[in-house]
């Protein structure tokens, strides 16, 4: 690992100031993606701006219509939250199956969505639930947030501060985990709620998470696993790698989606 300067600001404003003053600086939340990247010398930031000193960025709140999770809230905290389990059980269950216990004790929702790893779980939940990403300057709809593999609509000096999830009527997430890393080889999050029926697929797309509109149409007419029987998934635009070919991933999308609808009930 190359050396870097280290800052631990105590407010979002100070973090943004540090970030804006140094284009080669990087923010760190849980470090569960960033530190392995630094260890492999795949990145060489001039400075690390550690967000863990910002109290304001931690916490979960539930209102009548939405669950809001602040950016530095760990996966473990979401998984264990009685409020999240009650309002959006599918979200708590998803968080409980990210990586392993030690990854969940450090990794955060803000870091996960800002990173937009094509195999990450949170992007599926954010897109399917039609969440709104709050940053230090604006609010971004999920549909506009994920712009491609490892890329998002965030400006270089913009921070995720929270994610607001509308509470759905029904939702479920099912993933086929990579047996070594637990990342999603394919994960499908289905939701029926204020934003209609939404189906988000993670792990499969070469450009990261995407909505499966053909499945959404079929499920809007008939919310049942059988409705997906004849809905195919195009191999074009999917990822093929040593873990799974495009064909296999396309097949898994259908299987995971049916299981997710069955689970949502």
């Amino acid at each position: 690992m190359y050396d870097f300067a280290y800052h631990r600001p105590s407010s979002v404003a100070d973090a943004v100031k540090l970030l804006a003053s140094d284009p080669d600086a990087k923010v760190m939340s849980g470090g569960m993606t960033l530190i392995p990247t630094l260890k492999q010398r795949l990145a060489r930031p001039s400075a690390i701006i550690d967000l863990s000193g910002i109290r304001d960025l931690v916490g979960i709140s539930v209102s009548a219509g939405a669950v809001t999770i602040k950016a530095m809230t760990t996966h473990a905290a979401v998984a264990a939250s009685a409020e999240v389990k009650k309002a959006i059980p599918a979200l708590a269950a998803m968080a409980e199956h990210i990586g392993d216990a030690q990854v969940r004790n450090r990794g955060t929702i803000g870091g996960s969505i800002a990173n937009h790893d094509p195999a990450a779980d949170y992007p599926g939940a954010v897109l399917a639930l039609g969440a709104t990403v709050h940053t230090n300057t604006r609010k971004i709809a999920a549909d506009d947030f994920f712009t491609g593999m490892f890329s998002t609509a965030l400006a270089p000096d913009e921070l995720v501060t929270a994610v607001e999830f509308p509470i759905p009527e029904k939702a479920a997430y099912v993933k086929f985990p990579n047996p070594a890393s637990r990342y999603a080889m394919v994960g499908v999050f289905v939701a029926k709620g204020p934003a209609g029926v939404r189906v988000a697929v993670t792990g499969a797309g070469a450009n990261g998470v995407f909505r499966h509109t053909a499945m959404e149409e079929a499920l809007a007419k008939n919310w049942s696993p059988d409705a997906l029987h004849d809905v195919g998934t195009a191999e074009e635009g999917l990822n093929g790698d040593i873990h799974a070919s495009k064909e296999y991933r396309a097949h898994l999308v259908g299987v995971m989606a049916k299981r997710a609808v069955a689970k949502a009930g």
């Binding site: 470090g31 392995p36 473990a76 030690q102 990854v103 004790n105």
Partner: peptide, 23 residues
């Protein structure tokens, strides 16, 4: 080198963490 094996797990403020993935 990949934060996967857990040989380095210690407790920090009561929670288990991978000490190879924390500064």
């Amino acid at each position: 080198d990949t934060s996967q094996c857990g040989a380095c797990v210690v407790h920090v403020n009561g929670a288990s963490v991978k000490s190879c993935t924390m500064l």
